[in-house]
Design a protein around this nucleic acid. Structure first.
Lengths: 152, 152
DNA sequence: CGAATGAGTTCCCTTAGGGAACTGACATGC
DNA sequence: GCATGTCAGTTCCCTAAGGGAACTCATTCG
Protein backbone atom coordinates (compact mmCIF):
# COMPACT_ATOMS: atom_id res chain seq x y z
CA UNK A 1 0.00 0.00 0.00
CA UNK A 2 2.38 2.56 1.28
CA UNK A 3 0.29 5.66 1.29
CA UNK A 4 2.74 7.09 3.78
CA UNK A 5 5.40 9.19 2.06
CA UNK A 6 8.90 8.04 2.92
CA UNK A 7 10.65 10.53 0.67
CA UNK A 8 9.86 13.45 2.96
CA UNK A 9 11.29 11.93 6.10
CA UNK A 10 14.62 13.23 7.46
CA UNK A 11 16.08 9.76 7.28
CA UNK A 12 18.31 8.35 4.57
CA UNK A 13 16.90 4.89 5.13
CA UNK A 14 13.36 6.14 4.53
CA UNK A 15 14.48 8.09 1.47
CA UNK A 16 16.21 5.04 0.07
CA UNK A 17 13.09 3.00 0.75
CA UNK A 18 11.05 5.61 -1.07
CA UNK A 19 12.96 4.67 -4.23
CA UNK A 20 13.42 0.90 -3.85
CA UNK A 21 11.35 0.06 -0.79
CA UNK A 22 8.71 -2.13 -2.22
CA UNK A 23 9.82 -5.67 -2.78
CA UNK A 24 9.94 -5.93 -6.57
CA UNK A 25 12.41 -3.12 -7.18
CA UNK A 26 15.50 -4.85 -5.80
CA UNK A 27 14.70 -7.93 -7.87
CA UNK A 28 14.29 -5.80 -10.98
CA UNK A 29 17.64 -4.16 -10.29
CA UNK A 30 19.22 -7.53 -9.75
CA UNK A 31 17.98 -8.80 -13.09
CA UNK A 32 18.97 -5.68 -14.97
CA UNK A 33 22.37 -6.02 -13.34
CA UNK A 34 22.84 -9.56 -14.66
CA UNK A 35 21.75 -8.58 -18.15
CA UNK A 36 18.01 -9.10 -18.18
CA UNK A 37 17.16 -5.66 -19.48
CA UNK A 38 13.97 -5.89 -21.50
CA UNK A 39 10.34 -5.74 -20.50
CA UNK A 40 9.33 -9.17 -21.69
CA UNK A 41 12.40 -10.89 -20.20
CA UNK A 42 11.93 -9.15 -16.87
CA UNK A 43 8.26 -10.02 -16.73
CA UNK A 44 8.85 -13.68 -17.43
CA UNK A 45 11.93 -14.15 -15.28
CA UNK A 46 10.34 -12.49 -12.25
CA UNK A 47 6.74 -13.57 -12.64
CA UNK A 48 5.72 -10.01 -11.87
CA UNK A 49 2.46 -8.69 -13.25
CA UNK A 50 2.91 -6.56 -16.37
CA UNK A 51 1.06 -3.70 -14.79
CA UNK A 52 3.32 -3.52 -11.78
CA UNK A 53 6.43 -3.98 -13.88
CA UNK A 54 5.43 -1.02 -16.03
CA UNK A 55 4.92 1.13 -12.93
CA UNK A 56 8.20 0.08 -11.32
CA UNK A 57 10.29 0.64 -14.43
CA UNK A 58 8.73 4.07 -14.86
CA UNK A 59 9.37 4.97 -11.24
CA UNK A 60 12.94 3.69 -11.25
CA UNK A 61 13.66 5.58 -14.48
CA UNK A 62 12.11 8.78 -13.11
CA UNK A 63 14.30 8.46 -10.05
CA UNK A 64 17.46 8.07 -12.07
CA UNK A 65 18.13 4.49 -11.08
CA UNK A 66 17.43 3.01 -14.50
CA UNK A 67 17.75 4.51 -17.95
CA UNK A 68 15.22 3.66 -20.62
CA UNK A 69 16.92 3.37 -23.99
CA UNK A 70 15.56 2.67 -27.43
CA UNK A 71 17.58 -0.13 -28.98
CA UNK A 72 15.42 -0.32 -32.08
CA UNK A 73 13.24 2.35 -33.61
CA UNK A 74 11.80 0.45 -36.59
CA UNK A 75 9.71 -1.53 -34.26
CA UNK A 76 10.10 0.75 -31.26
CA UNK A 77 11.86 -1.37 -28.64
CA UNK A 78 13.38 -0.37 -25.34
CA UNK A 79 15.74 -1.72 -22.79
CA UNK A 80 16.63 -0.63 -19.29
CA UNK A 81 20.15 -0.14 -18.00
CA UNK A 82 21.60 0.84 -14.67
CA UNK A 83 22.78 4.38 -14.15
CA UNK A 84 25.67 5.14 -11.78
CA UNK A 85 23.06 5.80 -9.13
CA UNK A 86 21.45 2.45 -9.84
CA UNK A 87 24.73 0.59 -9.89
CA UNK A 88 25.51 1.87 -6.42
CA UNK A 89 22.18 0.49 -5.28
CA UNK A 90 23.50 -2.93 -6.24
CA UNK A 91 25.75 -2.69 -3.18
CA UNK A 92 22.55 -3.11 -1.27
CA UNK A 93 21.82 -6.27 -3.20
CA UNK A 94 25.20 -7.73 -2.30
CA UNK A 95 24.48 -7.17 1.37
CA UNK A 96 21.02 -8.72 0.99
CA UNK A 97 22.63 -11.71 -0.67
CA UNK A 98 25.03 -12.08 2.21
CA UNK A 99 22.26 -12.01 4.79
CA UNK A 100 20.01 -14.31 2.77
CA UNK A 101 22.87 -16.79 2.28
CA UNK A 102 23.65 -16.84 5.98
CA UNK A 103 20.13 -17.01 7.35
CA UNK A 104 17.81 -18.44 4.73
CA UNK A 105 19.84 -20.67 2.39
CA UNK A 106 19.61 -23.80 4.56
CA UNK A 107 20.97 -27.19 3.58
CA UNK A 108 21.16 -26.54 -0.12
CA UNK A 109 23.67 -23.75 0.25
CA UNK A 110 23.68 -20.40 -1.52
CA UNK A 111 21.95 -20.39 -4.90
CA UNK A 112 24.49 -18.02 -6.41
CA UNK A 113 28.21 -17.49 -5.83
CA UNK A 114 30.22 -14.34 -6.33
CA UNK A 115 33.80 -14.29 -7.55
CA UNK A 116 35.82 -11.21 -6.79
CA UNK A 117 37.77 -9.96 -9.79
CA UNK A 118 40.67 -8.65 -7.73
CA UNK A 119 41.52 -11.95 -6.07
CA UNK A 120 39.63 -14.47 -8.18
CA UNK A 121 38.12 -16.11 -5.12
CA UNK A 122 34.55 -16.95 -4.26
CA UNK A 123 33.74 -14.59 -1.42
CA UNK A 124 31.18 -12.23 -0.02
CA UNK A 125 31.02 -8.62 1.08
CA UNK A 126 31.95 -7.31 4.48
CA UNK A 127 31.41 -3.81 5.76
CA UNK A 128 34.45 -1.70 6.48
CA UNK A 129 35.00 1.82 7.72
CA UNK A 130 35.75 4.34 4.99
CA UNK A 131 38.27 6.09 7.26
CA UNK A 132 40.26 3.36 9.00
CA UNK A 133 39.37 0.37 6.79
CA UNK A 134 38.62 -1.84 9.75
CA UNK A 135 35.32 -3.76 10.04
CA UNK A 136 32.34 -1.55 10.72
CA UNK A 137 29.14 -3.22 11.77
CA UNK A 138 25.98 -1.96 13.40
CA UNK A 139 27.49 -2.77 16.80
CA UNK A 140 30.62 -0.73 16.12
CA UNK A 141 29.14 2.74 15.79
CA UNK A 142 27.57 5.68 17.59
CA UNK A 143 24.68 7.50 16.00
CA UNK A 144 24.84 11.32 16.05
CA UNK A 145 22.58 14.03 14.62
CA UNK A 146 23.89 15.41 11.32
CA UNK A 147 23.50 18.71 9.46
CA UNK A 148 20.32 17.58 7.68
CA UNK A 149 18.58 16.57 10.91
CA UNK A 150 14.97 17.61 11.32
CA UNK A 151 15.32 20.43 13.85
CA UNK A 152 19.03 21.12 13.66
CA UNK B 1 0.30 -6.20 -1.81
CA UNK B 2 2.85 -8.82 -2.49
CA UNK B 3 0.72 -11.85 -3.08
CA UNK B 4 3.71 -13.36 -4.83
CA UNK B 5 5.79 -15.51 -2.45
CA UNK B 6 9.39 -14.41 -2.37
CA UNK B 7 10.46 -16.92 0.26
CA UNK B 8 10.25 -19.83 -2.16
CA UNK B 9 12.50 -18.33 -4.81
CA UNK B 10 16.04 -19.69 -5.23
CA UNK B 11 17.48 -16.24 -4.66
CA UNK B 12 18.92 -14.88 -1.46
CA UNK B 13 17.77 -11.41 -2.36
CA UNK B 14 14.19 -12.58 -2.73
CA UNK B 15 14.39 -14.53 0.51
CA UNK B 16 15.75 -11.52 2.33
CA UNK B 17 12.96 -9.43 0.85
CA UNK B 18 10.47 -12.01 2.05
CA UNK B 19 11.48 -11.08 5.61
CA UNK B 20 12.10 -7.34 5.37
CA UNK B 21 10.94 -6.48 1.86
CA UNK B 22 8.04 -4.23 2.56
CA UNK B 23 9.04 -0.72 3.40
CA UNK B 24 8.15 -0.43 7.09
CA UNK B 25 10.31 -3.28 8.32
CA UNK B 26 13.68 -1.60 7.82
CA UNK B 27 12.42 1.48 9.62
CA UNK B 28 11.14 -0.62 12.50
CA UNK B 29 14.53 -2.30 12.72
CA UNK B 30 16.26 1.04 12.62
CA UNK B 31 14.21 2.32 15.52
CA UNK B 32 14.61 -0.80 17.59
CA UNK B 33 18.32 -0.54 16.91
CA UNK B 34 18.48 3.00 18.30
CA UNK B 35 16.50 2.04 21.39
CA UNK B 36 12.88 2.61 20.42
CA UNK B 37 11.68 -0.80 21.45
CA UNK B 38 8.06 -0.49 22.53
CA UNK B 39 4.84 -0.59 20.60
CA UNK B 40 3.59 2.87 21.47
CA UNK B 41 6.96 4.51 20.87
CA UNK B 42 7.38 2.79 17.54
CA UNK B 43 3.90 3.70 16.42
CA UNK B 44 4.34 7.36 17.25
CA UNK B 45 7.88 7.78 15.98
CA UNK B 46 7.13 6.13 12.65
CA UNK B 47 3.57 7.29 12.05
CA UNK B 48 2.73 3.73 11.05
CA UNK B 49 -0.81 2.46 11.52
CA UNK B 50 -1.23 0.36 14.65
CA UNK B 51 -2.65 -2.50 12.66
CA UNK B 52 0.32 -2.75 10.35
CA UNK B 53 2.78 -2.31 13.20
CA UNK B 54 1.19 -5.25 15.01
CA UNK B 55 1.48 -7.40 11.89
CA UNK B 56 5.09 -6.41 11.21
CA UNK B 57 6.27 -6.99 14.76
CA UNK B 58 4.60 -10.38 14.77
CA UNK B 59 6.16 -11.31 11.44
CA UNK B 60 9.62 -10.10 12.41
CA UNK B 61 9.43 -11.98 15.70
CA UNK B 62 8.26 -15.16 13.97
CA UNK B 63 11.17 -14.87 11.59
CA UNK B 64 13.69 -14.53 14.38
CA UNK B 65 14.66 -10.97 13.60
CA UNK B 66 13.11 -9.47 16.71
CA UNK B 67 12.48 -10.96 20.11
CA UNK B 68 9.34 -10.07 22.04
CA UNK B 69 10.10 -9.79 25.75
CA UNK B 70 7.86 -9.08 28.67
CA UNK B 71 9.41 -6.32 30.72
CA UNK B 72 6.46 -6.07 33.10
CA UNK B 73 3.92 -8.69 33.98
CA UNK B 74 1.73 -6.78 36.42
CA UNK B 75 0.33 -4.79 33.60
CA UNK B 76 1.58 -7.08 30.84
CA UNK B 77 4.02 -4.98 28.80
CA UNK B 78 6.38 -6.00 26.07
CA UNK B 79 9.37 -4.69 24.25
CA UNK B 80 11.13 -5.80 21.12
CA UNK B 81 14.84 -6.35 20.82
CA UNK B 82 17.11 -7.37 17.98
CA UNK B 83 18.34 -10.94 17.79
CA UNK B 84 21.74 -11.75 16.26
CA UNK B 85 19.91 -12.37 13.02
CA UNK B 86 18.23 -8.99 13.28
CA UNK B 87 21.40 -7.20 14.20
CA UNK B 88 23.05 -8.48 11.06
CA UNK B 89 20.17 -7.06 9.09
CA UNK B 90 21.25 -3.66 10.37
CA UNK B 91 24.22 -3.94 8.03
CA UNK B 92 21.67 -3.49 5.32
CA UNK B 93 20.49 -0.31 7.00
CA UNK B 94 24.02 1.09 7.03
CA UNK B 95 24.29 0.54 3.30
CA UNK B 96 20.89 2.15 2.75
CA UNK B 97 22.05 5.11 4.79
CA UNK B 98 25.14 5.42 2.65
CA UNK B 99 23.16 5.42 -0.58
CA UNK B 100 20.50 7.75 0.78
CA UNK B 101 23.15 10.17 2.01
CA UNK B 102 24.89 10.21 -1.35
CA UNK B 103 21.88 10.44 -3.60
CA UNK B 104 18.97 11.92 -1.69
CA UNK B 105 20.33 14.11 1.11
CA UNK B 106 20.76 17.24 -1.04
CA UNK B 107 21.88 20.62 0.29
CA UNK B 108 21.06 19.96 3.91
CA UNK B 109 23.53 17.12 4.20
CA UNK B 110 23.01 13.80 5.91
CA UNK B 111 20.43 13.80 8.72
CA UNK B 112 22.44 11.40 10.84
CA UNK B 113 26.16 10.79 11.27
CA UNK B 114 27.92 7.61 12.29
CA UNK B 115 31.03 7.48 14.40
CA UNK B 116 33.14 4.37 14.19
CA UNK B 117 34.19 3.09 17.60
CA UNK B 118 37.50 1.70 16.39
CA UNK B 119 38.83 4.99 15.03
CA UNK B 120 36.50 7.54 16.57
CA UNK B 121 35.90 9.21 13.21
CA UNK B 122 32.68 10.11 11.43
CA UNK B 123 32.62 7.78 8.49
CA UNK B 124 30.48 5.46 6.44
CA UNK B 125 30.54 1.85 5.34
CA UNK B 126 32.33 0.50 2.30
CA UNK B 127 32.07 -2.99 0.90
CA UNK B 128 35.18 -5.15 1.01
CA UNK B 129 35.96 -8.69 -0.05
CA UNK B 130 35.90 -11.22 2.78
CA UNK B 131 38.88 -13.01 1.26
CA UNK B 132 41.32 -10.33 0.12
CA UNK B 133 39.95 -7.32 2.02
CA UNK B 134 40.04 -5.08 -1.03
CA UNK B 135 36.97 -3.11 -2.18
CA UNK B 136 34.24 -5.27 -3.65
CA UNK B 137 31.46 -3.56 -5.50
CA UNK B 138 28.83 -4.74 -7.93
CA UNK B 139 31.21 -3.98 -10.80
CA UNK B 140 34.01 -6.08 -9.32
CA UNK B 141 32.44 -9.51 -9.40
CA UNK B 142 31.35 -12.43 -11.55
CA UNK B 143 28.10 -14.18 -10.78
CA UNK B 144 28.18 -18.00 -10.81
CA UNK B 145 25.59 -20.68 -10.03
CA UNK B 146 25.94 -22.05 -6.49
CA UNK B 147 25.00 -25.36 -4.82
CA UNK B 148 21.50 -24.13 -3.96
CA UNK B 149 20.71 -23.10 -7.53
CA UNK B 150 17.33 -24.07 -8.91
CA UNK B 151 18.27 -26.90 -11.28
CA UNK B 152 21.81 -27.69 -10.14
C1' DC C 1 -13.72 6.44 41.60
C1' DG C 2 -12.20 8.52 37.22
C1' DA C 3 -8.52 9.29 34.07
C1' DA C 4 -4.38 7.61 31.99
C1' DT C 5 -1.25 4.23 29.82
C1' DG C 6 0.59 0.44 27.04
C1' DA C 7 -0.42 -2.82 23.75
C1' DG C 8 -3.18 -4.37 20.87
C1' DT C 9 -7.84 -5.51 18.08
C1' DT C 10 -11.76 -4.35 15.11
C1' DC C 11 -13.97 -2.01 11.47
C1' DC C 12 -14.37 0.41 7.29
C1' DC C 13 -12.43 2.66 3.36
C1' DT C 14 -9.08 3.29 -0.17
C1' DT C 15 -5.38 1.81 -2.88
C1' DA C 16 -2.09 -1.22 -4.81
C1' DG C 17 -0.92 -5.88 -6.64
C1' DG C 18 -2.27 -10.12 -9.63
C1' DG C 19 -3.92 -11.87 -13.79
C1' DA C 20 -5.80 -12.10 -18.05
C1' DA C 21 -7.22 -9.89 -22.15
C1' DC C 22 -6.48 -6.28 -25.33
C1' DT C 23 -3.73 -2.74 -28.28
C1' DG C 24 -0.42 -1.08 -31.61
C1' DA C 25 3.59 -1.03 -34.24
C1' DC C 26 6.15 -3.42 -36.75
C1' DA C 27 8.51 -8.20 -39.07
C1' DT C 28 8.24 -12.51 -41.05
C1' DG C 29 6.53 -16.55 -43.60
C1' DC C 30 3.89 -18.34 -47.09
C1' DG D 1 -0.83 -9.20 -48.77
C1' DC D 2 -2.75 -11.54 -45.18
C1' DA D 3 -2.16 -14.27 -41.07
C1' DT D 4 0.92 -14.97 -37.41
C1' DG D 5 4.29 -13.61 -34.06
C1' DT D 6 6.79 -10.46 -30.92
C1' DC D 7 7.74 -6.70 -27.90
C1' DA D 8 6.11 -3.35 -24.85
C1' DG D 9 2.74 -1.78 -22.83
C1' DT D 10 -2.48 -0.59 -21.30
C1' DT D 11 -7.07 -1.72 -19.47
C1' DC D 12 -10.16 -4.05 -16.52
C1' DC D 13 -11.70 -6.50 -12.66
C1' DC D 14 -10.92 -8.73 -8.31
C1' DT D 15 -8.72 -9.39 -4.06
C1' DA D 16 -5.65 -8.31 -0.42
C1' DA D 17 -3.01 -5.05 2.13
C1' DG D 18 -2.36 -0.33 4.17
C1' DG D 19 -4.43 3.88 6.77
C1' DG D 20 -7.08 5.70 10.38
C1' DA D 21 -10.09 5.99 13.96
C1' DA D 22 -12.52 3.85 17.61
C1' DC D 23 -12.69 0.27 20.88
C1' DT D 24 -10.83 -3.25 24.42
C1' DC D 25 -8.51 -4.81 28.51
C1' DA D 26 -5.54 -4.91 32.33
C1' DT D 27 -3.51 -2.12 35.51
C1' DT D 28 -1.71 2.03 37.81
C1' DC D 29 -2.01 6.76 39.49
C1' DG D 30 -4.22 10.82 41.61
Amino acid sequence: MQRTRFGDMACSIARTLDVVGEPWSPLILRNVYVGITRFEQLQQSLGISRKVLTERLKWLAENGVLERREYSSRPPRHEYTLTAKGLELCDLLLVMVRWGDRWTAGEAGPPVLYRHHACGEISHVELHCSVCDRPMRATDIDVLPGPGAENG
